[in-house]
Simulated scan of single mutants.
Amino acid sequence: MQVAAINTTPGCDDRRLEQPHIDQHWDRLSTAQRFAFYTLAKLGYQLLFVRQSSHEKTAVARQDDKLVTIDSEGDIDFAPALILRENR
């Protein structure tokens, strides 16, 4: 299932026209994000997509209806200010 987000962060690109395959998202993760995601994957989270602005990469993962984000440093936010288009 492909999903996208309404971005609440200024300076991020809108990628509604073309959604990359999940492998392409994985390739966009930093090393720190990959290690953080390994921890989340053990808890049942799935990587949805990676958004990249000029200065930040943010990975978005989901478990059921719970969203989390992982910043470029690998810090996990369990309460992101993010709304998925499918939930609008």
Rank of each mutant, 00 (worst) to 15 (best):
W26K: 09
L43K: 15
H21Y: 12
F37K: 00
Y45L: 03
R28V: 02
D14W: 10
S30M: 00
Q19R: 12
L47H: 04
T39V: 07
P20V: 07
T31Y: 02
Q46K: 14
F37Y: 04
A41M: 15
D23N: 12
T39E: 12
D27Y: 08
C12V: 13
G44V: 05
Y38I: 03
D13Q: 12
A41P: 02
H21I: 13
R16Q: 08
D23E: 15
W26D: 04
R28E: 14
L17K: 10
Q19F: 15
L43F: 13
R15P: 01
R28M: 10
W26R: 14
W26M: 06
A41G: 12
Q46D: 13
Q24S: 10
F35Y: 12
A41I: 06
Q24W: 10
D14M: 11
Q33E: 04
Q33W: 00
W26H: 12
F37Q: 00
I22T: 13
L29G: 02
R28G: 05
Q46S: 11
D14F: 09
L17H: 06
D14T: 13
T39Q: 15
D23R: 08
H25S: 08
L40Y: 05
Q33L: 00
D14G: 11
L43H: 15
Y45S: 04
W26S: 02
G44Y: 04
D14I: 12
L29A: 02
D14H: 14
Q33D: 02
I22N: 04
S30F: 03
T31A: 13
T31I: 08
H21Q: 15
Q19M: 15
D23T: 12
L17F: 06
L29N: 01
R16H: 11
C12I: 05
L47R: 02
Y45D: 04
P20L: 11
R34L: 03
Q46H: 08
L17Q: 06
K42Q: 13
A32N: 06
F37H: 00
A36V: 00
Y45F: 14
L29T: 02
R16F: 14
F37T: 00
E18L: 14
I22C: 04
Q19T: 12
D13M: 15
Q24K: 10
A36I: 01
F37S: 00
W26I: 07
Q46E: 14
K42W: 05
D14P: 12
H25K: 08
R34W: 03
T31W: 01
Y45N: 05
S30R: 04
I22D: 05
L40I: 07
E18N: 08
L17M: 08
I22E: 09
P20C: 07
H25E: 13
L40R: 06
Q46R: 13
Y38W: 08
C12A: 14
E18Y: 10
D14Q: 09
P20Y: 00
A36C: 09
S30C: 05
